[in-house]
């Protein structure tokens, strides 16, 4: 099963891009600049409102036609679709947790004469990130599951390899797909564990 490597590659690339997308979009939605804010709002709603598989096909088949440039490879189309989609979902979490930091914290840091940047970095973010952690963990598993979609645009991930095996010998189909499921589960196990740990971390040292 060589597909595991590709699945993991897609997963890591989309995790990195997705998280950075989430923070960028989350901050943009909180910015004072109304153009920036409405633009990101539009992005988030579009990507949350349509399904991932449609976005994937759109990026892979339609985008090259619209602008005449290719996205490079199916790898980048897949990673971009997954990270843009989940980035949109997670940006809402980023925004929500930053907004739910108590007002007094903002006022206190202003009173201490901190700059905006200092305030965000030293006071607000450490408290907000703690609230984001459990949700981010859940999205890790969701992203893993969505990487199986890239086989539909011709990437040789676990599922694709399984398909090839099935095509070679149809009677193997149940075993092959069950094995594929087991592979995904094995990859998911550390992520589940990480999620539990993140939940514990976010609860640690907080009253109630």
């Amino acid at each position: 099963m060589k597909g595991v490597e590709i699945t993991l590659k897609v997963l890591f690339a989309s995790i990195l891009l997705g998280y950075s997308m989430a923070f960028i979009a989350g901050f943009c939605r909180l910015s004072n600049n109304i153009i920036l804010r409405s633009f990101t709002g539009f992005y988030v709603e579009v990507f949350r409102g349509t399904s991932l598989i449609v976005q994937l096909f759109w990026l892979y088949y339609a985008l090259p036609m619209l602008f005449g440039w290719d996205i490079g490879s199916n790898f980048w189309a897949g990673v971009l679709a997954i990270s843009l989609n989940y980035g949109a979902y997670m940006s809402e979490i980023v925004r929500g947790s930053i907004q739910s930091v108590a007002k007094g914290q903002y006022e206190a840091s202003t009173a201490l004469n901190m700059s905006r940047f200092q305030r965000m970095r030293l006071i607000i973010l450490p408290q907000a990130v703690r609230m984001m952690l459990p949700e981010f963990g859940n999205y890790l598993i969701l992203m893993l599951k969505s990487t199986s979609l890239v086989s539909l645009i011709g990437m040789a991930d676990i599922l694709y390899q399984g398909d090839l095996l099935k095509d070679a010998n149809l009677s193997l189909a149940p075993t092959v797909y069950f094995l594929v499921l087991v592979f995904y589960f094995i990859i998911a196990l550390p992520l589940i564990w990480l999620t539990k740990k993140m939940e514990g971390m976010s609860k640690k040292g907080v009253a109630s």
Binding site: I141, K145, L149, G162, F178, V180, L181, Y184, A188
Partner: peptide, 12 residues
């Protein structure tokens, strides 16, 4: 069931 992709489950 929760942590494996629905796509693979469909194929299965």
């Amino acid at each position: 069931i929760r942590s494996t992709p629905p796509l693979v489950q469909l194929f299965f």
